[in-house]
Amino acid sequence: MSLPNTPYVQYGDTVMFVGKDRRVFLRTIRTGEKLQTHLGQILLDDIIGLPYGTQARTNTGMGMYILPPSLDDVINELKRETQIIYPKDLGYIALKLGLREGMHVIEAGAGSGALTSVLALMVGESGHVYSYERKSKHLDRAIKNLRMLGLDHRVTFIEKDITEGFEQTDVHALFLDLHNPEAFLGQAREALQGGGFLGVFVPTVNQMVTVLRELYHGAWYLLQAEELIMRPWITIPDRVRPNDEMIGHSGFLIFARAVAREVRVLPEELATINDEDRPLDG
């Protein structure tokens, strides 16, 4: 699978077909294959060389637009063994982790590989992602999804319980998507370089409080906790309004920076220190 880089359909491209009812079909264009839909079928050989943004006709005469898919489109269609982090959160996570070309990033909790694919895309050819997952079934699915996207060479998948720590050190960013992330903050700090970016995903308020408490008393600074709510709207000009359906809650995002919080002042000396000279407290 490869996302298109040219204006015209070529063999090997992954193409998005969209009919009048906006149902989406993703197919990789291969010789002799066809797309079968509720609107009819399209022979994939027949669309080679067609410009993206035009329509192909099914055998019943129905038109379907041929579009290059975005990573968002692909992630929504990924086969999954677990609930993925939603695209509304994925882009924000990439921003908050400061992801860019050349970075080395650890992910704990590969799941089905949705976040892994974003991390791999952002770090580029000169960066690398180390994805940890203790369940082989989940790891196999993540590997297949990354291979389908053509990004698997940027990722090292590691089947391991991270209780004893990570194999890498001095990485730029680290993300925890685990059942009990507060238990692995020490291991995360050992793997991160000074000033490195930490991200954590938790679904419930009580988990968020637990993680924040551990971060507050650990070697972390600039703590942030956020929830992203996205409300889609109906876009028909004569009746623009909020959609009746939306994702009410997906999870909470927690971010922090790795620091060395060694307080070198004895408690009895604090009373004699000016406010501006006191150690940082959170």
Rank of each mutant, 00 (worst) to 15 (best):
E125V: 08
M16L: 15
M62R: 09
T54C: 09
A114E: 11
N206A: 06
P237S: 15
G196H: 07
V9S: 00
L178G: 02
G150I: 03
I47S: 12
I48N: 08
I29L: 15
P51V: 07
E227K: 14
L97R: 10
V209M: 03
G195Q: 04
D177F: 01
W233V: 14
Y8S: 10
K160R: 12
V265K: 05
M246D: 05
A108Y: 13
M230D: 14
F252T: 06
S112W: 13
L139P: 04
L71T: 05
I236A: 15
T163K: 04
K137N: 11
K144C: 06
G251W: 10
A256W: 03
E107R: 07
K137M: 06
V259G: 09
S136P: 05
P69C: 08
H104W: 06
G150V: 01
P267T: 07
L151A: 12
E164C: 04
R100F: 06
S131P: 10
L174P: 02
T169P: 00
N180G: 00
M148I: 07
P267W: 07
I48Y: 07
L121C: 08
H104M: 07
V202Q: 03
L149H: 10
G124T: 06
Y52H: 06
V205G: 00
V205W: 00
S250L: 06
M208I: 00
V263A: 03
G251V: 02
D89S: 01
A108N: 13
T28Q: 15
L39F: 12
R57N: 13
Y65G: 11
D21L: 13
E101D: 13
F184Q: 03
T28P: 12
N180I: 00
G63A: 14
E101H: 09
L3Q: 07
G199T: 03
S117C: 11
A114N: 12
W220N: 09
E182Y: 04
L121A: 12
I84H: 01
Q224V: 10
N274F: 02
E276W: 10
I247T: 11
A114S: 14
P181V: 04
Q193D: 07
P4I: 01
R213M: 01
S112C: 14
E182L: 01
Q36F: 09
P279C: 03
G218E: 04
H249Y: 03
V211M: 02
Q10Y: 05
D13F: 09
A188T: 07
D281Q: 09
T37H: 12
Y132S: 12
D161M: 08
E245W: 07
T82V: 11
V105C: 13
V205N: 00
R100K: 13
N59L: 11
S70D: 02
I234V: 15
Q83E: 00
G127C: 06
P87M: 02
Q207V: 00
A56M: 08
Y92R: 09
S126I: 05
A114M: 12
G248P: 10
I254R: 03
P203W: 05
H38W: 08
T58N: 10
A219P: 07
N145M: 04
